[in-house]
Design a protein around this nucleic acid. Structure first.
Lengths: 219, 219
DNA sequence: CCTACCGATCGGTAGG
DNA sequence: CCTACCGATCGGTAGG
């Protein structure tokens, strides 16, 4: 297993607006995430990454043992941040419907704010098997949170959700894909998009009951 | 613009179960789609594709001028097939709600049946600019169909859908992502998944009205 | 559809 | 963090 030397999720700081204050290591991660997103892992060269940071390719190896370790750092770190962000958003929220809203809102907001990282982390194809294990484990924890919320929603609504795993996949992938179409010059702000997505997710999760009218919908 | 020599969408035939009857050209497309999906465009080599077909790498160039033309053929052909499949599914359907169900069911079914092609076509990053134009044009036609359905649904439901473009993006990406998590040994059949997805999409599209009691969303 | 081959470029290393 | 460099491998071509 590669040592990705990540800070614990709780300690991750918000990045400052400028890049002047970042360490070289953090700037490498930033540039690499952007390039991996734009061209893909294999189409991005270490020379491109180095150029974006303002150093030579060989110097990258003072910070990362390999291109693969760089990818792992981005993917694993992003997964940790995503998990931390929804956990924060869920703190103190009891109602399953409100939990789903909070989850989707936090997830959507993160996928927009950190859209390059989010895209890279969503693409597990280029990770070596041993690194893949760690990232997938973190992703599973993330998905388990969503499934838990949907299971609670299902129980409190008399089985309105139905297939919890399937609905979790549908809602999870839907929200993750915001990062593929979001544009900075779009009509809606990230917060507005996140609110709509939260409503869409709740509507989808309760679709069975709200459409068939066969069962009472909880308030 | 690369000549991708595609049959018109209406003429596309259902592939037979075995691969013995396919032409070498079609087998190359089949193998390439599978490998591009599994490893990515840049991580797949012409030698791998040739090996999968049972010929040598140089022989591929009797069928395709370049690796890029092969990718374009897959992406553009898949987009044409997807468009044709939803158009067939929509034939004669008048009710906007039923149109949405038919659209999502057809799209989901296609994304499962042709999941390798669907994944490759969903990834536009590796297409050269001139080829990208053609594929994006076809994708835009596809999305316009969905937006049209949602606009009709919005009109017939007193503005329940709200932001048609946003909802179209959400539903479209959700359904496309089935191909990322579908497993042949899963509990549900493709048809069952497609039915659930159709219900989820309708629930999401009408989420505003079903959750807030017909309160119009701010435009 | 094959063998033989090539220029370009890649990830990574040596050594300072 | 740099210059200099290398083995491996890639997409593609020549010529049959």
């Amino acid at each position: 297993m590669v040592d990705v030397r990540l800070p614990r999720a709780e300690q991750v700081k918000v990045r400052p607006a400028g890049t002047e204050e970042l360490t070289t290591r953090d700037r490498i991660v930033e540039v690499a995430a952007r390039l991996f997103h734009q061209y893909g892992y294999h189409a991005t060269t270490m020379r491109q990454i180095a150029g974006g940071v303002g150093i030579k390719a060989a110097s990258l190896y003072n910070h990362f043992a390999s291109k693969q370790e760089l990818l792992t750092t981005i993917s694993y770190g992003t997964m940790c941040e995503m998990l931390a962000s929804v956990q924060t958003a869920l703190a103190g929220v009891r109602d399953p419907g409100e939990q789903l809203r909070a989850f989707v809102r936090a997830h959507t907001t993160y996928c927009i704010a950190e859209r390059y990282r989010a895209r890279v982390a969503d693409e597990l194809r280029d990770l070596d098997p041993e690194n893949l294990l760690d990232v997938v484990a973190m992703r599973d924890r993330y998905e388990a949170v969503l499934r838990g919320i949907l299971a609670a929603l299902d129980a409190s609504s008399g089985g309105a959700v139905g297939d919890v795993t399937l609905v979790a996949n549908a809602i999870g992938t839907m929200a993750s894909q915001v990062s593929t179409w979001y544009r900075d010059d779009g009509r809606l702000s990230p917060d507005e998009i996140a609110d709509v997505y939260a409503a869409l997710a709740l509507g989808a999760a309760l679709a069975g009951v709200s459409q068939s009218g066969a069962r009472a919908r909880p308030r």
